[in-house]
Amino acid sequence: MQEILKMGIVLTVVCVISAGALSSVYNVTKNKIDENVRVSDIKKRQEVLPSAVNFVEKEIKNKKLWSGIDKDGKEIGVVIKVSPRGYAGPINTTIGINKDDTISSVAITKLDQTETPGLGVKITHDSFKNQFKGEKGEELKLKKDGGAIDAITAATISSRAVANGVKEGWDWYMKEVRGQESRVRSQGEKHE
């Protein structure tokens, strides 16, 4: 009986100390983790639309987008985010689109993906991401699929995931953002 009581007390004490330690570590690190994500999001938006000085958050059909405003207060493009399915997990891709509907730039950091080290992870390299600059429409596909993007050697799945993700994001932008704009404009013209 005494033995069982001792066991119970020891287990309880160990559990309580462990839970207490973890909850305090969690509280300290959580702010830092959230802060890291926030800072990195801002940095990625700046990276894909470098000449914008301010970003205005909007929401269309439950999907967030940011319109980039330059120093003269003019809208120079939008930033959207997509998460296509890669080889090992989702690839969180930030896409900047210029006013002329071409891709301004694509941002994927090492933290946005879980692709194979040394292989799929090369989607985060500039040599891959820069291929998207200035492209639009059907060009946003791998060369194998009839587009303009070179796949990374031995990492076709990851490359294709990014290309198709960017294409999908671009299609959404054309339909929901540009489509709406032109509809509003044509309605406005009718009124006049």
Binding site: S18, A19, L22, S23, V25, Y26
Partner: peptide, 8 residues
Amino acid sequence: NIEYLRTA
């Protein structure tokens, strides 16, 4: 809200 106890 005690996700941090997952591993344990």
